[in-house]
């Protein structure tokens, strides 16, 4: 927006009320939005609905966290070293996912594939750590059927783990599609959706390590 445009509406610098004249965004005044915006927005709505899904599992966990039925409790099971490693894996993976989307925007095939490869490795590391954690719990007799607390734990954390595993499959698909079809607009839109998905999973994990693990072991 130019200074002159801004000066024309001193009370409304962002032209919220002057869409027709200024083609302000968000009002459809500039014509239908581009496909990338529509696709990204639709996927954003899906992600928000995914957050709502997770919020139900979070609510169930918050209610049932003390219902251990005489079995293993949070503070006896959780090992913060593993959780810290999982958190680091997912955060670094999210960072390299962002770099991959930059590489895609710059049409750099080699960089894109390399960054996606690193994203995959850290994401796979997260899933492996989580799987070994689950195996350790079940070995200790803390299986999902042991108590309501463990049912809620495995459904919340497991639901996130399934999301990450599906994301890894999606990631490999995107690497293959870019290799086979190049940086076509439709492929770039899929990459946009994938990076949104990947960052959103990291946001859910922030909630999980705070609510489940850290609050669980706090004095």
């Amino acid at each position: 927006m130019t200074v002159a445009e801004r000066a024309a509406f001193p009370d409304d610098p962002h032209h919220v009320g002057h869409g027709a004249q200024a083609e302000a965004p968000g009002h459809g005044a500039g014509g239908p939005a581009g496909k990338r915006i529509v696709v990204g927005y639709g996927f954003w709505i899906f992600l928000l609905s995914d957050f709502v899904l997770f919020s139900c599992f979070f609510a169930a966990y918050a209610v049932l966290r003390n219902a251990s039925a005489g079995g293993p409790t949070e503070s006896r099971l959780f090992d913060l070293t593993t959780v810290a490693a999982e958190t680091a894996c997912l955060l670094i993976s999210s960072f390299f996912g962002g770099l991959a989307s930059l590489a895609a925007g710059a049409r750099q095939m080699l960089w894109f594939q390399a960054m996606m490869g690193v994203t995959f490795l850290f994401g796979a590391g997260f899933v492996a750590l989580e799987a070994s954690e689950f195996a350790r719990f079940i070995g200790l007799g803390a299986a999902p059927q042991r108590s309501a607390f463990l049912s809620a734990f495995f459904s919340l954390v497991g639901c996130h783990g399934i999301h990450v595993s599906c994301g890894l499959l999606w990631l490999l698909t995107m690497m293959a599609q870019v290799l086979a079809k190049g940086f076509r607009p439709d492929i770039l839109r899929r990459i946009l959706c994938f990076t949104l998905f990947w960052h959103a999973l990291d946001i859910v994990w922030v909630g999980i390590f705070t609510v489940v693990y850290l609050t669980g072991v706090a004095p």
């Binding site: 927006m1 200024a22 083609e23 302000a24 965004p25 968000g26 500039g30 939005a33 581009g34 496909k35 990338r36 915006i37 696709v39 990204g40 927005y41 996927f43 954003w44 989307s101 930059l102 925007g105 710059a106 940086f183 607009p185 770039l188 946009l192 990076t195 949104l196 960052h199």
Partner: peptide, 26 residues
């Protein structure tokens, strides 16, 4: 025709996840 860069023009909405880069880009 539709390109990636077209969506970064001024006066348009930004797709979630997209960043409006002005200047040194990458």
């Amino acid at each position: 025709t539709e390109t990636f860069d077209h969506e970064h023009g001024s006066g348009e909405d930004t797709a979630p996840g997209d960043e409006r880069l002005d200047g040194s880009g990458v």
